[in-house]
Design a protein around this nucleic acid. Structure first.
Lengths: 358, 358
DNA sequence: TTGTACGCGTTATCAC
DNA sequence: GTGATAACGCGTACAA
């Protein structure tokens, strides 16, 4: 089966290559009959245009690429769906590009922009260490989603959309303190993390301070480096160790729902209960947090709205309309059963002296 | 910022384009100093080769593409990881291509093969309705993963790897029957499903028959079409309706773990317990099945092994070695707490006449 | 070891 | 409405 080209089709049809090209690309200035005839031959001979050649030649292409670091992260699923829908609503094509853990997403973006003649780019995940000289190489507008990044002002073609991780983390920990907890374990990222892990840890610290609780390094538990980050298993393993170590605490605040669920399971496996023995809270607002038993108290990020906003802003920039460069969304604390519904105190607190306020 | 090409680089370096090309592509026949000099200039001017042009020109490319229908399906995550690792171990490049729900994966494959000069293709998800004349257009070897498809013998370049869905479904339902259940609800795909939903339903029917239980259409519950298929939410909603309808049963067998978890939650929300009031079983062996509370009895597919095997066979075909065309993996029934651990009968059965055998 | 010239398959720009 | 032809940016015989 030899690769059949546009030239072959032209010959078979007895027309010129440009006419075939016109037929393929729905150009207006072509005889309807000729077009039909050409399309029939194409079908018959199974001709498929070579995309590399098209991309090489085409000047504009109306395609938006979404680069995702961690494609299997359940957090991104619903966002990708919305992005796709919105992009297609604008009659642009949608390219989903997966970026590997060790890969540099900006590098990939630069290549892809040239290869596919992109009109715009969306980054999901990654992007916390911003190498400005690299970012300058992107010549099309791009939006950084879900990472709270401080953008250099001179980057004109760029916007960032996220929640305020520090603030939302504060919100959660403050809530836990008000529930009466004074020994709150935080399940967080590795020490060298400079991304959301850092922000959420800072929110934790500030909330403790605001509630007159001393920051205790021994209650800061970090994910295992030999396991995948932000997985249920990782949350399970570190919590298991924590429990085995006999450390004293009444609540675990995990910086992701997946970690929180792992923590819950470890508690159950140790013969304890949630929330009666330990309260557990997560972060992100994944579906599973709602459907877990007990449902997990979490900070719900408005993912769908954020995705819509990403596309709105991206197209503002593409269309040279004035666009916001930095949008911070408000998240929502969703009270689940894993912290006792926010009303009743877990029995873990019964022996303590703290009263539940509010 | 004008697009800088290989010609510009050549001019800047005072060499010919082929020398630059040699430097980029690590050709052996080039002076080390010249190469270094060229690479420095490239770095300085941020030259990035255009992939479309490369793909167009290159004859061979050593790349494997993995086409995934339903990229956010948690079932595929671990498989993709293994596929990626194995492909890179072979020193081939790895391309992950997402196929949309309404898109035809074979169509996408045909295009991608031409565009990227692929050496091999892996299909994950989709692929149950095999349009043979289309498949013939693929000129490189490909492996269909996770779908139990009967391959036409004349397709030489093609292999399929999966479990035996009917048999494994039988295994599960037979187990449930042996636990004493006689009124087992199956949570399955829509009526028009011709894929795993159909196979697993058939296994259910055969198991009932083998256990002398009459097939009762009213116990066949199908996913809601207006919700996403195989989601927790879908499982939750249909189970909620089922419970509200007051239908009598002692066990729910969901054809995916996500559905099973939704079912559990609906049961909890109705004030009932698992497994004491209703037993629940799932299928697939997702991580969450293990970490849910109670852990969900499920059929665990050996995903990682299957992924390894996919690559092994794909490369057998690429290297023209004799290769198996159809591999059926054995799955494993993992007893969770959601069916009472397989030992004690759920109290739901207490009033019944069935005794637990085995 | 290096440079020139051609062609990969397509689309865009002309003429007709 | 249609056809020839010049790019698009790169890799690679082939000649030097």
């Amino acid at each position: 089966m030899e690769q059949i080209t546009i030239r072959d089709v032209a010959k078979l049809c007895g027309v010129g290559v440009s006419t075939v090209s016109r037929a393929i690309n729905n150009h207006p200035d072509i005889n309807e009959e000729t077009k039909q005839m050409i399309m029939d031959i194409i079908k018959e001979y199974n001709y498929v245009p070579n995309n590399s050649a098209r991309n090489l030649k085409r000047s504009d292409s109306k395609t938006i690429a979404v680069l995702v670091k961690g494609i299997s992260n359940p957090f991104f699923g619903p966002m990708i769906q919305v992005l796709e829908r919105e992009v297609e609503k604008k009659r642009y094509s949608f390219v989903l590009q997966h970026v590997e853990e060790e890969e540099d997403e900006v590098e990939v973006a630069i290549q892809l922009e040239k290869e596919k003649r992109l009109k715009g780019i969306v980054f999901l995940g990654g992007m916390y260490s911003h190498k400005e000289e690299r970012l300058c190489q992107l010549t099309v507008p791009y939006v950084i989603g879900t990472v709270n990044i401080k953008l250099p002002q001179k980057l004109e073609q760029c916007a960032a959309i996220s929640i305020d991780d520090e603030k939302e983390s504060y919100r959660m920990v403050d809530y836990l303190c008000r529930c009466g907890h004074r020994k709150i374990v935080i399940l967080t990222a590795a020490r060298d993390d400079a991304s959301i892990g850092k922000c959420r840890l800072e929110g934790y610290q500030r909330a403790l301070e605001a509630n007159g609780i001393e920051y205790d390094e021994s209650l800061v538990v970090r994910m295992k480096k030999n396991l995948q980050t932000y997985t249920i298993k990782n949350g399970y393993e570190v919590t298991k160790e924590l429990l085995d170590a006999g450390r004293e605490f009444t609540c675990i605040y995990a910086i992701s729902d997946t970690l929180a669920i792992g923590a819950c399971k470890a508690i159950f496996d140790a013969g304890k209960r949630v929330p009666e023995d330990y309260c557990v809270a997560g972060f992100d607002g994944l579906d599973i947090a709602e459907y877990y038993e007990p449902s997990v108290t979490t900070i719900r990020q408005p993912r769908e709205e954020m995705a819509s906003e990403i596309i709105r802003i991206l197209f503002d920039m593409i269309k040279k309309r004035p666009a916001e460069k930095q949008v911070i969304f408000e998240a929502k604390l969703v009270e689940g059963a894993s912290t006792g519904g926010g009303r009743r105190a877990p029995s873990a607190l019964a022996g303590g002296s703290s009263l539940i306020k509010e």
